[in-house]
């Protein structure tokens, strides 16, 4: 996974977002075992305590679970994963609409543009 951090938010909340992103995108598959806290911290280049805090929060939210000796695993609850995925999609849509509104486009115009884009691409790819 690629880890990118912004300056204006706490690091632990960005870790939570990025691990969730990994889970909903399937990069971290359901039921898959997560690397150790130290290895994840090294991979992300962050403090191990911060990584630990992020994983504990993900555990509370039910996105990962611990097995006492075996380590931490990604949840197998597909509904849970799907609902997080939906929430991410809703956020992308909100940002997109904000951006388009900034250009002066209303809802109907946006839909028309999307439709237009779809037809063009359908034509190109022959789908």
């Amino acid at each position: 996974m690629e880890w990118i951090f912004r300056g204006d938010q706490p690091i632990y909340s960005q870790l939570i977002q990025q691990i969730k992103q990994g889970i909903v995108s399937g990069q971290l598959p359901p039921g898959g075992r997560l690397p150790s806290v130290r290895d994840l911290a090294m991979e992300a280049g962050v403090n191990p305590n911060t990584m630990q805090r992020a994983l504990q929060e993900l555990e509370r939210e039910g996105m990962v679970y611990s097995q006492r000796t075996a380590g931490r695993f990604v949840t197998e609850d597909m509904q849970r994963i799907e609902s997080v995925k939906r929430a991410f999609a809703a956020e992308h849509i909100r940002l997109f609409r904000e951006g388009m509104a900034g250009l002066g486009y209303g809802r109907e115009e946006i839909l028309a543009l999307l439709q237009e884009e779809k037809e063009e691409n359908d034509g190109d790819s022959g789908m």
């Binding site: 300056g7 204006d8 938010q9 706490p10 690091i11 632990y12 403090n47 911060t50």
Partner: peptide, 11 residues
């Protein structure tokens, strides 16, 4: 570090 980021909204 995270409390500064949280309270100040900056690194």
């Amino acid at each position: 570090v995270d409390s500064i980021r949280e309270e100040q909204g900056k690194s």
